[in-house]
Amino acid sequence: MIAEIARRLAFLPVTLFVVATLVFLALRALPGSTVDMLASSFSTAGLRDQLIAQLGLDQPLWKQYLIYVGDLVRGDLGRSFITGRDVATMVGETLPVTIELAVASLVVMMVVGLGMGLAAAARPGSLLDGALRFVAMTLFALPWFWFGILMIVVFSLWLGWLPAFGRLPSSVTYEPVTNFVLIDAILTGRPELIGPWLAHLTLPALTVGLTTAGMLMRLARAGVIETARLDFVRSARMKGVPPGRVFFRHVLRNAALGILTVIGLQFGAMLGGSVVAEVVFGYPGIGRMMVDAVLTRDYAVAQGAALVLAVLYVLVNLVTDLAYRWADPRLRREPGR
């Protein structure tokens, strides 16, 4: 298992190198450049040339690329053309927001998805099973952005239960330390932050979590039903092991394999794919920052964000795989693939 981790981690730089190169090339293949954005409100031809030179964009592409890779190797993500700030700092501000949202969504997805899946699997073919399957499919089929708007209208506007935007109410002063509100609330001894923070997190997390819960429900249901049919479960039952114990020790543990994979995949997708939720709910996450950076041709920011998301994706997958191996005794014994 350690060998496998080492192998996967050893491959990480290759992945990053390819992702970095692809983003670098793709961004420069786009029409328009930062200079057009910077110069758009007041420009003379001379000023534009001067800008291009100052940003180093007059250098040949291979040279720009070498400089970029050189900086990367030294751990320097560069500086934003537009904001003049360190990309690493900007990532440090936006990534925790996205992780918060992804984790909260994951919790919603697991509670709702697993709950519905297990309830449905308890009596396959029953009316409840049918209804839950329909609900799951519907959740999956909802366009996320549309569902988000609907949530705002219902829960913010009509019922007035929950705030519709942002991370904290404007009346609260919050000085970030780690940018994770929960951790900061503990570190700085401000428990009063947690309530408002959760309230603001609820709608976006529900939107992302519920729309992804559908798939998990179907998997959990299928996994449990199929495992329950297997011989070792039957024999456990025949041996008179109490049903609860059979369910938790045998059925659930085996079904967990498939479920774990889905959870890992979905979490990875949430990290990079929460852009839409971030736009609808005005959540200042890394996805929105990355999209904005592409649209304004702020090369360094787009490159930095893409790289960080790629690293996270790989790490999440690695952790999922390890959990998978841990959960499955057969795989644990094998010395890696």
């Binding site: 290759v14 992945t15 390819v18 992702v19 692809l22 983003v23 990875g268 997708a269 990079g272 794919g273 852009v275 996805g287 990355m290 999209v291 592409v294 787009a302 964000a305 893409a306 998301l309 790629a310 994706y313 790989v314 997958n317």
Partner: peptide, 9 residues
């Protein structure tokens, strides 16, 4: 690698 590339990007 393709999968680790943010899809929306």
């Amino acid at each position: 690698i393709l999968m680790s590339f943010p899809l929306i990007l």
